[in-house]
Amino acid sequence: MGSRTSARKNSSPVNKRKRKRPGFWRVVAALFAVIVISSLLFLSWFFFTASGTSLRYKLADALITTQHRFLAKYLIGEQGLADRVADYAKQFQEMGEELDTHQITLPTGAGDHAAESLTSVEEVDGKGYHGFLMTVKDPTKIRLVVPEKAGRGEKVGSMVKRTGALAGVNAGGFADPEWQGNGFQPIGLVITQGEIYYNGLGKDASAQIVGLDKQGKMLAGRYSIKELMKLGISEAVSFEPRMIVNGKGLIKNHADGWGVAPRTVMGQKEDGSILFLIIDGRQIGYSIGADLYDCQQIMLEHGAVIAANLDGGSSSVLIKEGGDLINKPSSKSEGGRYLPTAFLVFDDPSAVNVPNVWAGLNPGDIDPSKW
């Protein structure tokens, strides 16, 4: 009898431990089931509902503006990616076609601004973004500047410092193979002081341009070289899209805003003032970026009657006198990227010597990947 009682006492803890195990695995199984069901519900929403599809395309658009464009195919498929890029190209072309009829009226004594009052900078904030808006009161004080030495681009801060400019922003795009380009080969046209410094289009081709004529009126949209010369072009680069023309916005909503990214935008008010908008991005906790609809609305709110996109992403910089950064670019390179062009503000632009660094070079002579 005593031995049977002892056996029961000795087996009791073992039995208790055994009874605990089924409960533990039931909890694990329940958690796994919750994860699976939640994942299936999320994927169903993400891929098969209107709101989920909207988010997928917003994420895809953001990726399209980066060096990781190929990743967008995992959100919208390879054909979806190709169609999206083609749709934007068509949309941007159409946005540049309407005839611009805006006129400017420069205030009396516009050219007499003291250096400290010629420009002003204010901060702008919105959902997910932070940036800066620089106003240049006299548009005739702006000049396009190019790199000093052949073979690679130049940081905007360096351009500002060596030329004695009062301020500057990045301008046009450039050939960027594997997203490691040297910033020396522009895309399309580069015109400064009415002279063509670089022509990657051909003699009779047209392109979307952003720039100023000799009277300080901003030009943006699709033009041929012949048309630009007839209009008295002074400074210009190729870029797109034009987002405001004749005082009206051309981008309907955020869905057509080409994703969230760092941005640089140029616009003009009726009094001739030039607005340069720089939005920082790709920095969690500070500023993710803005889409083109955000930028359009900021420009409209500040009185722009015409506005157009300039090169953005990690190229977006705003520089003050002396070459110091005002914004926080997303570029891995300190002080921003090496670029082919910048719009700089001068007290006397005509006194600035800007040699043509591409003189004697054909586009085919330039290796945009070689440092």
Rank of each mutant, 00 (worst) to 15 (best):
K252E: 14
V85N: 09
E148K: 09
L325Q: 06
G272K: 00
V169L: 04
G259R: 00
R19D: 15
L361E: 07
S158D: 15
R337P: 11
H68C: 13
N182Y: 05
E148Y: 10
S11G: 13
Q67F: 13
K252N: 15
A72D: 05
R242K: 08
I306R: 02
A175W: 11
S234F: 00
L277N: 00
L144M: 06
I233P: 03
R8I: 13
G360N: 08
W358C: 03
Y197F: 10
G183I: 01
Y223S: 05
L300I: 05
S369L: 11
A62I: 08
L71R: 09
F346I: 08
P355C: 09
Q268S: 04
N353F: 13
V260C: 10
A33F: 12
P13F: 09
I366R: 06
F48H: 15
M1H: 14
A304G: 01
G257D: 03
F174T: 04
V36K: 06
V352I: 12
A115P: 07
S51M: 10
K20M: 14
P368L: 05
K332N: 15
A33H: 09
G259W: 02
T105L: 10
V210C: 01
V190Y: 03
G257C: 06
D100T: 07
P139W: 01
A62G: 15
P355N: 09
V160D: 01
